[in-house]
Design a protein around this nucleic acid. Sequence first.
RNA 1: GGCCUAGUAGUUCAGUUGGUUAGAACGCCAGCCUGUCACGCUGGAGGUCGACGGUUCGAGCCCGUUCUAGGUCGCCA
Length: 583
Amino acid sequence: MICVNQYHTHFCSEVSESDIGNQVRVAGWVENIRDHGGIQFLDLRDHYGVVQVVVYNEAMLANVNRQCCITVEGTVILRSEDTINPKIATGTIEIKTNTLTVLGKAPSSLPFEIDNSTNTKEDVRLKYRFLDLRNPKVHKNIVLRSQVISFLRNKMSELGFLDIQTPILSASSPEGARDYLIPSRKHHGKFYALPQAPQIFKQLLMVSGFDRYFQVAPCFRDEDARADRSPGEFYQLDFEMAFATQEDVLTVAEEVISETFKRFSDKKVSNAPFPRIPYAEAMLYYGTDKPDLRNPLKIVDITEIFATTDFAPFKNKTIRAINVPDCASKPKSFFENMLKYATEELEMMGLGYIKVTEQMEFLGPINKFIPDNQRENLIEKAKLVPGCVLYFIADEPMVAAKLAGQIRSELGRRLNLIDNSEFKMCFVVDFPMFEIDEETGAYIFTHNPFSMPQGGLQALLEQEPAEILAYQYDIVCNGVELSSGAVRNHELSTMIKAFEIAGYTEDNLKESFSALYHAFQYGPPPHAGMAPGIDRMIMLLTEEESIREVIPFPMNSNAQDLLLGAPTEITEQQMREVHIKIR
RNA sequence: GGCCUAGUAGUUCAGUUGGUUAGAACGCCAGCCUGUCACGCUGGAGGUCGACGGUUCGAGCCCGUUCUAGGUCGCCA
């Protein structure tokens, strides 16, 4: 693979015992210099690896600093037994330098230690990202990213999907995130927008008769960053299938996702088929729509046990409970700390619990509020066994569900119940189509106005909107939402009705989504798709906590590119051309 | 926009109750060193303690304002 030229005959990683006695040339960056007086050792690193270079003439190192770029010509020699370095792949040999040429100088003082760059303040790293990326650990993440994307592309092609590019300069969409806008020069006062996702275009491709589409799609959203959310732009494996059901999409997704995770990780990965968990069950058992299935704890609803209670915190509340096995013997501090977490972090009024003794007696202040005629029922419902602890969470229905979910996660963390050596996947399905806006009391789309309601037009006509489910699904890995997708609503009449429920007229629809509205009059096929987030996948594979660790040139959390300085000011002339004035 | 945390040497950090000349490690510079691989040894340079204002005899430390960064809530159909 190497291109033999004046710079190198071998990559640093390639020089081996089979080259002993031969003249070789290697090129790379000086990682370290150890000067012993009369003899100097250089660690020379390129993209592929590291090799030790020996210099017997100090004058050769006149302009050589760490991280400068050099090429070295020399003889490969075997290291003596006692000087072998088992820590590096080329540790049995070294290169005795004949000539050393500096190809690119570097200053003697660097902004940070390359080896340790990941511990440096992020703004400094990002300003010198080109140096940060020389850190083997950071470098490796980008290599992995490339390999994962290449694997995904091959896999999708293998499954018959066509890689089709959709426009980057596109139109602003009325729903969803804030758009990145680009002023038009030729059309005074008008703007392009960068796509938040290729949603409309991929649906149009389905109408165009392409059966299976995919794209490693850049998506742009002008929203604030999070540790796992890049500001500005991110990549999705966007795909869509014509004449497809929800199951068809899930089958493709679980094959692609499980194979990718297996290929690029040593961890145990869920085999297909992944569990399909209805949204309502996810909220009940896990208290979240992105359950971490590595956590064995499950939430149970015991509202009926306390139906007649006078205990004020439980009265007329939804009550959820979490059975924690082998927990009764935990020290007092464990329970105190959990209470502290509940009251301080979650702002709960309290966190009741009972301990179950060997004799199946209940200990704890909540005990006296459990009606005697419900004790057997509670044991059965919550599957109580000797030595377990049952935590109680009482509140309004949705609040109780979410708090129970947070308590469940925290218990999992504190009790080390999470097996970090596996990737556990699931699909969360059957999301509700509509929800009630807390401020206005009106129905709004829960997720996506393009989803097909389960039961179609008839359901929209006959059912209570809050009861209607959508063919809408998420893929979740270890509690991280990897993507969402849906069977799309391709029937204009159904779409009109759905928009009507959400308070929009047919004219609104026609105006906001004119392309779809127009195209769907010309024989749209049923279609469905999904868009797993590629950056998130790579984060999971590399176990990085920040998405910026897996993006070559990320923006900082304030949406600035510290290398190029974006966003930058532009000239008066540029502004005039696009008819923009800054106030 | 709200909240939390942080900001001290090039980097990572320590800095006691407010009290002498603000320290350490790594890096850098000079010297010594022919087998190191986190080389070693000796010496040295390097600081607007984020900024501004206040309290005080005296502020890195206390108070106020502000800026920057990271996290988080809102937001992300």
